[in-house]
Simulated assay, not measured.
Amino acid sequence: MVVRRSKRSRKMRGHRTMGWGTKGQHRDRGAEGGRHIGMHKEKWSWIVKYGKDWYGKHGFVNPTTKNIKSISIRKLSELIESGKIELQNKESVIEVDLEKNGYNKLLGGGKIEKPIIVRVPYATNKAKEKIEKSGGQVILTSQS
């Protein structure tokens, strides 16, 4: 864009609208930003290219929602075998504190052969049955 060397206010003195036309006369702020109409009509190609999050809800996080990070028995046994989870060995029984490893809930999907002791705030009934069937124990650390 070309740089305007002389100010327009000096240049257009004596002309009634000073080059801004007969209707708006440079009073409105124009299309400088914000949410404008026509974005689902004539400006749709701009929306597709640049405005991915133009429609929908934005920026509110409900304070009452609880983020529960869960892990299944299948994933837990994989992590134990690969050594990617912190363990405590007590008398040939593996003990796992899932809360220290960042998990809140134990789910019942998968199989487990080794007897393990699992400390976790929440666990499903199916998960408890499977762990106890393998000779282990589920210790719930939550207060409720």
Rank of each mutant, 00 (worst) to 15 (best):
E91V: 05
K100V: 05
I85P: 04
I71N: 05
S92P: 10
Q88H: 09
N101A: 12
I73H: 15
G83C: 01
E81H: 13
L87K: 02
E99G: 09
K100Y: 03
N101Q: 10
K84M: 13
I85R: 00
L98G: 07
I68V: 15
K100T: 01
I94W: 13
E95S: 13
S82E: 13
S70P: 10
V93F: 08
Q88S: 13
L76W: 01
K75L: 02
E95R: 09
L98V: 03
I73F: 14
R74A: 12
S82M: 11
L76A: 00
E91M: 12
I71M: 09
D97S: 04
K75E: 04
L76P: 10
K100P: 02
Q88K: 13
S92Q: 10
I94P: 11
V93S: 07
V93T: 07
I68F: 15
N89C: 05
G83K: 01
L79K: 07
L87D: 01
S82R: 13
L76F: 02
N101I: 05
L79P: 04
N101S: 12
L76C: 01
G83W: 03
L79F: 07
K69E: 12
E99K: 05
G102Q: 02
I94M: 14
K84S: 13
S92V: 08
I73P: 15
N89W: 05
I94S: 14
I73R: 09
K90W: 04
S72K: 09
K84A: 13
G102N: 06
I73L: 15
K90D: 04
